[in-house]
Amino acid sequence: MSTPRIGVLALQGAVAEHARALQAAGAEVSTVRRPTELQGLDGLIVPGGESTTMARLAAPVHLMEAIRERHAEGMAMFGTCAGMILMADQILDAEALTGFERIGGLDVVVRRNGYGSQLDSFTGALPVSGLPEDDLSPLQAVFIRAPVIESVGSAVEVIASWQDRPVAVRQGRVLAASFHPELTPDHRLHQHFVQLAGARLNS
């Protein structure tokens, strides 16, 4: 079985944390700031950070369009927090993102900073379905000025919820979470993503 090659979008944000988690999950990791760096990737993580900053940095090099094209060709995607916002088909309170290209492809409606300001940031333990070996032991989730998933389309599977709201979802080869699995030592979601990205390789 060959090792899946996973990129981390490195315009801004928690890049090193994702890279470390991916390495621990057995992937070959590289960073992506230019469209050419998407070549040969089986998967791409779009990290947490500021979606407004990333959208502006991506625009001059048409990076969001390139990611969308590579995803259409089969590259898996995993978005956390800001990354999920950039993958969502619809964003509420998106004024600061107006006019900027996004990735899209995930049939959800999200609300930026929906959980409030930093004083409302929180952590919680939650079970995630579909992890390797159906391991449902709770995963520590860190929510930081997190986006709320307001609703999901029919093709979207909710794999984790917090207080009756979806906080992690999967749609085909797209994975997304409101929280930050890269900040805790539990790498099961990254392992899940590496398997998802690698599935095409080995099929």
């Binding site: 315009l11 890049v15 940031s121 930081i144 900040l183």
Partner: peptide, 8 residues
């Protein structure tokens, strides 16, 4: 963690 999100 919020500071980590500001990196770069």
């Amino acid at each position: 963690g919020l500071a980590q999100m500001l990196k770069g």
